[in-house]
Amino acid sequence: MSNLHEAMHISFKNDEIAYLCGQKSTIAFTKTLGNFFYLETETEETVLFTEPEDLMVASAFGTGDKILRGLQCTLYQLRELGAPLIVLPKGHPASPRLKVVVSIGPRTRLSCKIQPGTHPEQDVLCGSEEFADLEILAEPGGAEARGFSFKMGIVIIKQL
């Protein structure tokens, strides 16, 4: 059943992280605070600039406390420690071993049909089928989750 017509506003503070916990996967997001982020490839470095209300969204397959902590750790490293985002070249053996994937910007759309070779300039993030076509949009004081309802899972807000 499609939940695309449903939208939920999720309020959270700048020092908090919001989780959407499904049956098989988990999405986490927090504000970028207008920080910039380094995208590193084998050959060059690109700086990604953001607006204060923009979001950093992380997606992981799996549920439970380990997954929540892993997502929090990823977002904390990026935002608070200024860790760079490492972009692996196509076909790199580490790619299928990634546990958490990240998207940064005002809008992120989850897709379970993502083509191998995600395009970094796009706003699509790999997610499980249960969150297919879910959109996370930045809003003042939080985010809007389009296509999410409490039938699909629960929302948890925690300190980042």
Partner: peptide, 16 residues
């Protein structure tokens, strides 16, 4: 705006 990662493969950074 920017996605890094995507399950089985990532890349195409040249399209940034």
């Amino acid at each position: 705006m920017c996605t890094v990662g995507g399950g089985p493969d990532i890349g195409n950074i040249e399209a940034l």
